[in-house]
């Protein structure tokens, strides 16, 4: 479905909504008063990723590993330094703003801090209806109001709260407002960047259930769900990509992620997450990851995980492993797998 005639098409299986190929995103780093450039951060360092229609793909990894950058590059809110982004059969990598706008309508973003992303002076109704106005999607004032009401109900907010301003809502309700706005243009893809990280456990559960219900109800909605909490990501995702220093080190189904993790980093990450059950905890294997994530300004050679890896061999510091399919769509990037 090409909405813009000058947009280049790209070969993409019909079942994929998004395909990112060999994406690099680099940020220059400046230091001192003279703002001298001292280096480049490879925030995303060669990521290839597909998102199927209607699925939830989780992106997990420790702070600074490039999750947010990758999510934003998918929407071209950050410009990739190299690589290509295809969305619903269109190569959007080099599209100019005007050509990009009608396509971007079908992609949306939800943030971690609901209050930070909502204009504090505008009413909730105004905020939710904004995309409808920008893209002129409703035919009349009555149609507009009906649609905004519908969006409120869809996310479990009482439409009579439309005139309130954001600070009159709880954190969980503000996140619902953010979700309602994201849904306004019938997106086929929503990038959810830490949407529940700032919420209390019961509110987290409510929002996760809401996201799942919306997906089941709306049919063709895919999520890229970014979070650092592995239990949360595994719960909402069909497949999960584990990132380390700007790269994907493992990508597999949510079931296999827990039952058959192959990358030593994934294994260590899983082991570090405590399970809320003392009987399970007392019998779990302990793998302790020592040291800290290296500076992305000066990443280690070879496999960037090798300085912390319990299974590293000499070759790991020289040769950078490729992400490869070990069967059944389970991808791992490790020389020893």
């Amino acid at each position: 479905m090409n909405e813009s005639c000058d947009a280049p098409a790209c070969a993409l299986p019909e079942e994929d909504v998004l395909a990112m190929t060999d994406i690099h995103v680099e940020f220059p780093v400046f230091r001192g008063i003279a703002k001298r450039k001292v280096g480049t951060v490879k925030a995303v360092d060669g990521v290839t990723l597909r998102v199927k229609r209607g699925e939830t793909l989780g992106l997990v990894g420790e702070s600074g590993c490039g999750k947010t950058t990758l999510g934003r590059a998918a929407l071209r809110l950050y410009e990739p330094t190299s690589g290509s982004v295809c969305f619903e059969g269109t190569d959007i990598t080099h599209l100019k703003d005007r050509a990009l706008r009608p396509i971007r309508r079908h992609m949306a973003l939800i943030f971690q801090d609901p209050s930070g992303s909502l204009d504090p002076r505008k009413s909730a109704g105004h905020i939710v209806g904004e995309p409808l106005r920008i893209h002129k999607l409703t035919s009349s004032k009555a149609d507009y109001e009906r649609r905004v009401e519908e969006l409120f109900s869809l996310v479990g907010l009482d439409p009579c709260m439309m005139d309130r301003v954001p600070h009159e809502f709880s954190g969980g309700q503000r996140q619902r407002i953010g979700i309602a706005r994201a849904l306004a243009c019938d997106p086929s893809l929503i990038i959810c960047d830490e949407p529940v990280s700032a919420l209390d456990v019961s509110m987290q559960a409510q929002i996760m259930n809401l996201l799942k219900d919306l997906q089941a109800g709306l049919g063709n909605l895919a999520y890229v769900f970014v979070a650092h909490d592995l239990s949360v990501v595994r719960h909402v995702s069909d497949r999960v990509a584990v990132m380390y220093l700007g790269r994907i080190v493992e990508l597999t189904s949510s079931a296999d992620l827990y039952h058959d993790p192959r990358h030593p980093y994934t294994q260590a990450l899983l082991a570090a997450v405590p399970i809320p059950d003392p009987y399970v905890e007392q019998d779990r294997d302990r793998i302790y990851l020592e040291g800290e994530i290296p500076s992305p300004l000066d990443p280690p050679t070879g496999c960037t995980f090798h300085p912390r890896c319990p299974r590293a061999i000499p070759a790991c510091s020289e040769e950078a492993p490729e992400l490869r399919d070990i069967g059944g769509g389970h991808e791992v990037s490790c020389l020893r797998v």
């Binding site: 559960a205 595994r234 189904s253």
Partner: peptide, 11 residues
């Protein structure tokens, strides 16, 4: 206890 996802839960 019922509102938190567990890493070892059935998918």
């Amino acid at each position: 206890l019922k509102s938190v996802p567990r890493l070892d839960e059935r998918h």
